[in-house]
Write a protein that binds this DNA or RNA. Structure first.
Lengths: 339, 339
DNA sequence: TAAGCGTTCTAAATCGTTTAACCTTTCGAT
DNA sequence: ATCGAAAGGTTAAACGATTTAGAACGCTTA
């Protein structure tokens, strides 16, 4: 009992295959009568419509959009920021009858999907840098988010400005300051950056955040040596714990710690509170992102709020529109109680 | 500048298309020499391998697996249980070079993907019940998780037994008991179930949990009227809040409240604590799932721990193996401090 | 010498559509 | 009476591969 094909149906109904195809795809190519007649006959005999696999080949369009996440899905799916982003993307895709294929940014190559997907949304710099090149060399549309790809439209907030502003709000002249950063250098575990070469410095948003911090520090007359900058390989609690301990146990302890994500900042806050450090009396902390948890702590986190859902929605809309213009989204500085 | 096709390559190298195809797909069909020779020539001229869209049509295989989530992705991606499940699935798929397509369980139908995906993993009963029927009528492999589909392999824990055990641990003779349930009846918002007809009673795991609770209640000599059973349409905090308020404000207040998920139980705990109710002195609470947050509260939650990652991994393995045998996973009763 | 056999490669059918190009018929306008 | 355009179809060539059946070749064996 094989599945019905368009050809079978055409034979049964005594019309050409083109007519059946048109009935499903191009209503203007045949009379309304004929069309409903055909559609009903199809329902009758159990033909649910053209085979999608064949459509993909023939049309060169699959309605599948690949969401390339920075890292392995293992990790990315759990991160609340990535998570809400996915939510936003999926909502818009859904509305447009598109499908969502999750793709890991540490994959070997995109050759196994590039032939059939309709486009890529690239969230964060892929861990495997070669993917960026591949993405840029192929001809399907690409929208980047939280990182940049030469010539492709990007969705971003102004990370440099936001970082500058939150840092400015936290810093006082004469402070000792430390930075807990993210993906600044290539390293498998948490460590200070010292003189390691910076990673991807032009396209990465965390380098923009670093730029913003540095501008604020300079303006306030504060020097930060690279051994006061920590680097986390991923935005996850386990990496943050180690950095938090190290920075809090160093002496003299900093007066301000600028964190490049709320996940990091929250872990640091937790750690500081258990050590009995008074926040913000003895230590000020800033985060980044504005995840829900950051608003629920006592004292609640000073951070930069950006809407991940919106980012996701805009990214998907941009991809589907075929437009090629980048977009800068708004953000909000939330002063909170930690500075 | 069109993309190279296998035919172009064959012409250029002066061999047949079959040989090129074999070089990529069936090494045993040609000599090793010829093969490496061809592969290198391909690399040289920039042919990266057979077009995937064409392969999908011809082979009837795409390496894409659809993960059908119970609800809209919007919500499912955020739920920590679903989340870690996805993680497990993606890990195994990745290892096997398969791709993950996220599919919403409240979609109209699966006809738009069934032609090209290799199989389905179905996580929880799809909100649109018609999907279950469609999934079962088509011929691609299906693995179900946390619900059952006649004749298809399922991955589950013994929900009835686990619920019985956690309830048994919480209940004392003479207790007044309430239940905060999930998807027991068809209702768009939180409400008591009264005499509403049960939904999907045979295939749903929450009904198994209800069975377990009821057995424990009966054994302990406790009666529970249906107006002491709340139903939440989805496992989300916002629905739980309302149920929590209602049940805590009812008088006389129950001595024990059995919750069908940790999300619900945590919201209830939060609510009870703000009302100044002593846990477990004045009120005992049980959860279900064993999410991380449930271990971090004071007092920490009595619950049934199951590994969602493992569930995901097993589901994916089962699907890929083509095996047809269901599987019962282990769980653990964690007594915690709330009973 | 002819048959047998393993190896390597080729030709052609197939997968299930879409769509540009073409063919009739009808009908009002010239 | 003739033309042109519109309406409503049909034909057949793609789309880019996979795969079966069999041809050609070189070699052994009876």
């Amino acid at each position: 009992m094989k599945k019905l094909t368009l050809k079978d149906v055409a034979k049964q109904l005594g019309v050409s295959t083109a007519t059946i195809s048109n009935a499903f795809n191009r209503p203007d190519q045949l009379s309304a009568n004929k069309r409903t007649e055909i559609l009903e006959a199809c329902k009758e005999i159990g033909y649910t419509g053209p085979n999608r696999a064949a459509q993909i080949l023939r049309k060169g369009q699959s309605n599948i959009v690949a969401l390339v996440l920075a890292d392995s899905l293992d990790y990315m799916v759990t991160d609340p920021v990535a998570n809400t982003f996915i939510q936003g993307v999926s909502r818009v895709l859904r509305e447009n009858q598109k499908h969502l294929l999750l793709y890991a940014g540490d994959s070997d190559s995109i050759t196994d999907v590039v032939d059939f997907v309709d486009g890529f949304i690239c969230y964060g710099a892929p861990r495997n840098g070669a993917l960026s090149t591949q993405l840029n060399q192929q001809s399907k549309p690409v929208v980047t988010v939280d990182f940049n790809l030469e010539g492709r439209p990007a969705i971003n907030i102004d990370n440099e400005k936001a970082s500058y502003e939150i840092a400015k709000a936290a810093l006082r002249p004469g402070d000792r300051a430390a930075i807990l950063g993210l993906r600044l250098i290539d390293s498998p575990s948490t460590c200070r950056i010292y003189d390691s070469p910076l990673l991807d410095a032009e396209s990465s948003i965390t380098h923009r955040r670093l730029d913003g911090y540095c501008r604020a520090l300079k303006e306030t007359g504060i020097e930060v040596a690279t051994d006061w900058i920590w680097n986390l390989p991923e935005n996850a609690g386990m990496y943050a714990v180690q950095a938090a301990r190290e920075v809090l146990q160093s002496s003299p302890r900093p007066d301000v710690i600028l964190c490049m994500s709320d996940i990091i900042a929250l872990e640091l806050l937790q750690c500081a509170l258990t050590m009995g450090i008074d926040i913000p009396g003895e230590l000020r902390i800033t985060g980044f992102d504005g995840i829900e948890e950051a608003a629920r702590t006592r004292p609640y986190m000073a951070t930069v709020c950006q809407s991940s859902v919106e980012k996701g929605m805009e990214a998907a809309k941009l991809l589907l529109s075929g437009d090629n213009t980048s977009m800068s989204l708004p953000y909000e500085i939330k002063v909170g109680e930690t500075i």
